[in-house]
Each structure stands twice: as structure tokens, then as C-alpha cells.
Nucleic acid binder design. Structure first.
Lengths: 193, 193
DNA sequence: CGTCAAAACTGACCACGGTCAACTATAAAA
DNA sequence: TTTTATAGTTGACCGTGGTCAGTTTTGACG
């Protein structure tokens, strides 16, 4: 059975996270360098990897926290009354992911892992998101706004697919300034019929 | 106006491509190292980047050729008579992409670029694929197998979304041995109603 | 031919993520 | 307090993708 972590470890971890988040806040996710983090935190490089496994491990912790905030907000907001409301509810999260390709890449990569260790956070977020979608859909089915002949969870996973699709398209055509929340609308309309 | 490339350049390019393809054939895409390629081809590292821009540039050329072969086969095959036939037609391409994450990542990254230079090949492939899907769908609409109330191109792009979705899921849960061509079926059924 | 500008190539060098054997701090047991 | 096992940390080192100022090769033109 693993022992509880010592104070020292928690302090080091907190220092690394604080530094990393300040770098991200100032220069963005794609400017994050492990060497900068350890230099500013005053620890050795090896310590970083002992804590987070790899660079993505740190990113997963930071992104997981942000994504959780968005999900909290979505859960607190009023439930959608029409399929179009789903896009509106998703807009803040989509804007966040669309801001930087590294966010999208990492979320996509860890989106379905059989979660262990650090990336568990991302996996949990995705499960939670699917569950939330499914509940929304069940509600819309009950009020006759969405086709009632299909499993809400399957429909929810379809929304996830469209979501990733419009985000990927958005990154490719960088001149296409149409926000992802708008681009997803035609798909939602057909999908939820 | 740019001059025509010299013989020497074409030979060097061919040498690099031959070596790269033999490495891929023997050890797989994720084992491809630029340093191995240039060493076996007998050229300097800088030459590689002068030809392909970056490692992904080479991969795009190789993958583009393979994907084009799959598309040729799909175009030559009999048109789908039912929505389910689409999955069957897609199966070889899906199996190819699913064999290695680097293939999927690169295709996704370049899938919608406003193609210039090397990665044009990938972009062209995607446009061609969407067009092919749209034609299939138009045929199925004519024979009453698919909902006729929606634009075939939009429906085609939706299929693209599901395709990437099941591939991504497949990479995450590596124990889930369900082939992508099967996983996409429930989505197709709903989407094409 | 010889000349010369553009094309092609070179390899030392850099950036950055990641590894690991060795060292130090911690706290429980003796 | 001393001992000892383990948690935590260190930094030199590596692998690999990518850069670029300098060198060689090519082919057009006088």
C-alpha cells in the first residue's frame, strides 16, 4: 500500500503548477516549455517528470481543471429547451478549446483512455460531458424537441463527434472565423431531427 | 517564375522516398526516424528538410499515395445499395488508418488545410472523399434508402465526423477490438435515417 | 570553352522532451 | 539517538526534429 505523500512533495508540485499556469496565462499553452517551468520553479528537470510523467501529464492537470470549470457552469445553467440551445451552452467550452491546437490535440488523445493516474481527470471530464449531453437529450425527448426513438447516450456520443469535427475544421482553415458553436448547428439540427 | 527542378533533385527525392517507404514497410510508421532516412539514403539532414519541409511533409507524401490507392479502389467498387454498404466500402481505409496513431494524427491535422505545397495531397484526398460520399448519398437518396431532405454534402461531412470519432475511440480503448467499420454502423443508421 | 547566378547540398549546431544512476531528506523502527 | 528503508530530488546525458551559413553542382549565356 502506497504511503501518503510528504509535505515536501506537495509543495514542489504546487510550485510547478503555479509556475506553469503563470506561463500559460502570459504566453499561452503552446509556449509552455518544461525547461522554463523547472527553471522558474527552482527544481531539477527530473523532478518534473517524477511528478507528471511527461509534459502532457502537466497539461492534463491544468486543462482538466479548466474543463471542469466549464462543465460546472454548464451544469449550473438552465437546461436547453431546443436543440439550438445546446450550441449556446457549449460555446464557452468550444471557444476555450479552439484557442490553441495543443488543447484540442491533448483532449482528443486522452478523451477515451481507460483512465489511470494523471490523465484520469480528462477521462472523467469526458464521461461527465457525455452524461450531461445524454440528460439534456432525454429532457428534450420528453418535451418532444428531439427524436425519441434513439438512445440518449448514443445521440450524446454523436454530438461529441460533431464537436470534434467542427473544432478540427476550424483549426485547418484558419481564415474561417466562424465560431465552432455556430458551425455545429446544422449537424445538431439533422442529428436530433 | 520558378525553374523546373534539376535531375539531381528528383533523384535525391526518389532516394529519400524509397528509403522511407522501406523503413515503414519493415518497422511501421511510428518507427520512422529522419536520421535513419538520411543515413540510409546517403544525404545530409538539411537536404531532407529542403525537400519535405518537415517530417510530416514526408509522411504526407507517403500517406497521400496510400490513401489515394484506397480511394481508387472505393471508386472502382460497386456503389452502395444500403447505408450499411458504406461501412463495408470504408473498411479497408479504416483498417489502414487504425493501424497506427501517427497516421490518424497526421491525416486529421492536414485534413482541411487550404492546401499548398506538399500537404496538398492529403487535402485533395479529403475533398475527393467527401465528394465520393456525397455521390453515394445522392444515389441512396434517389433509391429511397436515405432521407432525401438534406444536402448530400452536409451528410457526407457528417460521415467524416463519425469516421474520425470511431477511429479516435478505437485508439483510446486499445482493448476494444471492435473494428472501426463496425463501430460506425449505429451512427450511420441514425444519421442517414 | 570560361563565367556566373541560381539550385542543390552539407554538417555542425540548436531546442526541447525525456531518462536514470546517484545523492539527500524524511520519518518510522530499534 | 542512531539506524535504516523509502520518498524525493538532482543534473549530466541522450534522442530526435529542425536550422542555416557556407560549399559544391548545375546549366544558361557570352
Amino acid at each position: 500500500m502506497p504511503r501518503a505523500p510528504q509535505k515536501r512533495r506537495l509543495e514542489t508540485r504546487a510550485k510547478l503548477l503555479t509556475v506553469a499556469e503563470s506561463i500559460v496565462a502570459e504566453h499561452g499553452y503552446s509556449a509552455l516549455r518544461v525547461e522554463d517551468v523547472v527553471a522558474q520553479a527552482g527544481v531539477a528537470k527530473g523532478t518534473f517528470f517524477a511528478h507528471f510523467g511527461d509534459k502532457d501529464g502537466l497539461l492534463a492537470v491544468i486543462l482538466g481543471a479548466r474543463v471542469t470549470e466549464f462543465l460546472d457552469a454548464m451544469e449550473a445553467a438552465p437546461k436547453p429547451q431546443h436543440p439550438g440551445d445546446i450550441a449556446t451552452l457549449l460555446a464557452p467550452l468550444l471557444d476555450f478549446i479552439a484557442q490553441d491546437r495543443v488543447i484540442f490535440d491533448l483532449l482528443l488523445r486522452y478523451s477515451g483512455t481507460t483512465g489511470t493516474e494523471v490523465d484520469e481527470i480528462i477521462t472523467q471530464s469526458f464521461l461527465r460531458q457525455i452524461t450531461m449531453f445524454a440528460e439534456w437529450i432525454a429532457g428534450l425527448q420528453a418535451s418532444g424537441q428531439v427524436r425519441p426513438d434513439q438512445d440518449p447516450t448514443l445521440l450524446a456520443e454523436g454530438i461529441q463527434a460533431f464537436l470534434n469535427h467542427v473544432l478540427a475544421i476550424g483549426f485547418c482553415m484558419d481564415h474561417d472565423k466562424q465560431p465552432a458553436a455556430e458551425a455545429i448547428l446544422p449537424y445538431l439540427r439533422i442529428w436530433l431531427a
